[in-house]
Amino acid sequence: MKRKSTFLLSTPYGLWMLGFTIIPLVMILYYGLTGRNGGFTLENIRLIATEENLKALWLSIRLSLLSTLLCLLVAYPLAMILRNTKFKNSRFMVMLFIMPMWMNSLLRIIAWQNILERRGVLNTLLELLHLPALNIINSPAAIVLGMVYDFLPFMVLPLYNTLVKIDENVINAAHDLGANNFYTFTKIIFPLSMPGVISGITMVFVPSLTTFVISDILGGSKVLLIGNIIEQQFQKLNNWHSGSGLSLVLMVFVLISMALVGKYDKGEGSAGVW
């Protein structure tokens, strides 16, 4: 009886996931591995090896690795401070770092255009201070900045969630046993925060690797990432087969990071706070 009701309850979701997750992915596989005439071909996958596409993929990998590293470097001290400082209202402090997500993310990236422009907000301020101007708009540097900006909360949240869970007694024990701050951090705190680090890394790396919006707005269509190339295949060139083929290549990287999450993440770290 109980088995039957579990089966009944899980049927709608099972069917939903089959229809809206698995079959759509099979469709990408199908289009990626067939040509316009319908026959099997590896031509679409091989497209990644053209000079332009390979350059875009390599640039995407480098920029997303860099922005993931920067996010980790900015977010870790932040999460540590949020954990250690006894604020009167720590929930509100954490809220403060999520709140920017309530302003439309496209508009916030567009606002960075305003800040970074040749005669933008930042350069006006720098001029007032008699400092040299900074010209990074429409360059990879601006794209990395946009990525770090957009995805930083995704790094802060899982890090904070794992760091607050670390028992203060464990840290005190390490101190009592003679470990200095450095040792306590490298031997106790950092290893215990690993699930948060891993889930933060994937939550920043995958969207940075695959974005086409940030590069479009802050790269001024001069800098092409692999996401831009795929988007153009679908929206401008209407070539579903080559677009799907390139998406398959992209999915290899996504799968690698999924495997990483599966290995480390035990259902903690992600989401939460809401």
Partner: peptide, 22 residues
């Protein structure tokens, strides 16, 4: 739970394209 994870971890562009093709 594994299948549930797919849309959360997959690249949004891939999810978008796959649904469009469907």
């Amino acid at each position: 739970l594994g299948i549930t994870n797919i849309p959360m971890l997959n690249a949004e562009i891939v999810t978008g394209i796959s649904l469009m093709l469907l």
